[in-house]
Computed example of a mutant assay.
Amino acid sequence: MNKPKHRIITIANQKGGVGKTTTAINLATALAAIGENVLIVDLDPQGNASTGLGIDRKDRKLSTYDLLVGSQSVLEVTMPTAVPNLAIAPSTMDLLGVEMEIGRESDRVYRLKKALEAPEASIYDYILVDCPPSFNLLTMNALAAAQSVLVPLQCEFFALEGLSQLLETVEQVRSTINPGLDIQGIVLTMFDSRNNLAQQVVSDVREHLGDKVYHTLIPRNVRVSEAPSYGKPAILYDLKCAGSQAYLQLASEVIQRERQSRAA
Rank of each mutant, 00 (worst) to 15 (best):
A159T: 05
P119K: 13
L160E: 15
S91M: 07
E161W: 14
T29A: 10
L236G: 01
A118S: 08
T21K: 08
G16R: 14
A242K: 14
S148K: 05
S63R: 04
I9H: 13
C131K: 09
S193P: 11
S244P: 09
E105P: 05
P219E: 11
D94M: 13
N85R: 14
R257D: 06
R194I: 12
A264M: 14
G210R: 10
G103M: 09
L236V: 03
E171D: 03
D94W: 04
P228E: 04
E171H: 05
P152A: 01
A145R: 02
G47K: 00
P84E: 14
R104N: 11
A33F: 01
T92V: 00
Q199L: 12
P45G: 06
P90V: 11
V74I: 15
Q184T: 09
L86T: 01
K20P: 00
Q46A: 08
I55F: 00
E36M: 12
E36W: 13
R259W: 11
I40L: 14
P119N: 09
T81I: 02
V151I: 11
S261I: 15
S164K: 15
S193F: 12
T216W: 03
T10Q: 09
P179L: 01
S71H: 07
A28Y: 10
V41I: 15
V205R: 06
M190F: 11
D125S: 14
E101V: 01
P45Y: 07
L217N: 07
P152W: 04
N196S: 15
N221R: 06
D66E: 15
G17S: 03
V69C: 12
A87T: 10
D44E: 04
Q249N: 13
E171S: 13
R7H: 15
M79V: 08
A227P: 02
F158R: 10
V38G: 15
D211M: 11
K113I: 04
Q199N: 13
L95K: 05
E258Y: 11
T92R: 04
L116V: 03
K114R: 13
L31D: 09
A49H: 06
G19C: 08
K114G: 01
A28W: 05
L31R: 07
L143Y: 01
P228D: 06
D204L: 14
N196K: 15
P45V: 01
G103P: 00
T176S: 07
I25T: 03
K5M: 12
Y65V: 00
N37C: 14
K58E: 08
C131G: 12
P133L: 13
S244E: 09
I218A: 06
T216M: 03
L96V: 09
N85L: 12
N26D: 08
G47S: 02
